[in-house]
């Protein structure tokens, strides 16, 4: 199944000279091995992107989506969204949420990674395993449980806040609606997203920490440096590549968060939209589907993610080069 064309071409005589970097004459046979991957990526990943790009310049309704010719409207879709204050509100929500959630994810994740690293074998395996299950939990499940926890029927958070002394947290929590206005909605969203995503950071940091020689820390301690100094003097510089990758990945993930917000506040609550929800709502939120407008929003979102991806690619390629 794999690579059956190869053995014939192998010329054993040349192998001994420079086995590590043998140059192969380009032939079509081997390319067949990467062809399936290219086809899948091209047809199922690149094609939708091209479609979104094209539709963002067109007026596309349900009929046009099903094959009728669409009217080209030039930049009208972009003009409409960029000139609309509401778009900028969703844009602000998206960016602010990403900044806060990424910072919290990295901070909590790093702290938990450091903690697990110092626990005993059993305990660290337990905590690492537990946090990974949270990471693998379906976003829809996490969203549901957090909406329930913060909900007005049976929600433990309101019950708990109400039970605390009023002097501390104020009163009237029993019927507080967390999903009525954007700020509390995003607070819950941030807690939910951080809960789901810091495990990945913690486990990655842990994997990195295990590669750092212990002697470095001992030497630092003999020199009288504190834990804080050891972190910034040893851990952080050595794990900088890992932190870089984690930062970029978290930004990309948090920029396009959809499911959790979709469940918590839904398509009816426009005030709390972020970019992905706004785009989705234009396309699928009503009977009067505006795929063109939704596409234009998706293009903006994709461009931002691509920009961050470019930074990521540079980072990875540089590391590939040095390692």
């Amino acid at each position: 199944m794999l690579d059956t064309a190869q053995p014939v071409r192998r010329t054993p005589g040349r192998d001994t000279t420079r086995p590590a970097r043998r140059r192969r004459r380009p032939r079509s046979g081997p390319y067949l091995l990467i062809l399936p991957a290219l086809v899948v990526i091209g047809v199922l990943l690149i094609w939708p992107v091209v479609q979104i790009g094209r539709m963002s310049f067109e007026k596309v309704g349900v009929r046009q989506l099903r094959g009728e010719p669409a009217e080209n409207v030039g930049l009208a879709n972009y003009r409409q969204i960029l000139g609309d204050g509401f778009f900028w509100t969703t844009f602000r929500h998206t960016v602010l949420f990403a900044v806060v959630a990424v910072a919290a994810t990295l901070l909590v994740g790093t702290l938990v990674g450091l903690l697990i690293n110092r626990l005993g074998t059993k305990m660290s395996a337990f905590v690492a395993g537990g946090v990974l299950v949270a990471w693998a939990t379906p976003p829809i499940t996490a969203a549901i449980i957090f909406s329930w926890l913060f909900g007005t029927t049976g929600g433990l958070v309101n019950w708990f806040l109400d039970a605390l002394p009023d002097a501390l947290v104020g009163s009237g929590w029993a019927n507080y609606n967390w999903f009525g206005t954007p700020l509390p909605t995003y607070t819950v969203l941030t807690i939910c997203v951080v809960w789901m995503s810091f495990p990945f950071v913690a486990v990655s940091v842990l994997a990195g920490l295990r590669t750092v020689p212990r002697e470095l820390y001992e030497a630092a301690r003999v020199d009288g440096s504190s834990a804080w100094q050891s972190f910034w003097g040893i851990t952080f510089p050595l794990l900088r590549p890992i932190f870089g990758v984690l930062l970029v990945l978290s930004v990309i993930w948090d920029f396009r968060v959809f499911t959790q917000l979709f469940v918590m506040s839904g398509l009816a609550n426009r005030d709390a939209f972020n970019l992905s929800l706004y785009g989705y709502s234009e396309a699928f939120g009503s009977l009067n589907a505006r795929y063109g407008l939704g596409s234009a929003i998706a293009v903006v979102l994709t461009l931002i993610v691509l920009l961050v991806t470019a930074m990521y690619a540079r980072m990875v390629i540089r590391q590939e080069g040095t390692s």
């Binding site: 939708p48 396009r256 968060v257 785009g279």
Partner: peptide
């Protein structure tokens, strides 16, 4: 999330 409209089409 970002590509769903294109995928749908």
């Amino acid at each position: 999330t970002a590509l769903v409209i294109g995928i749908y089409r």
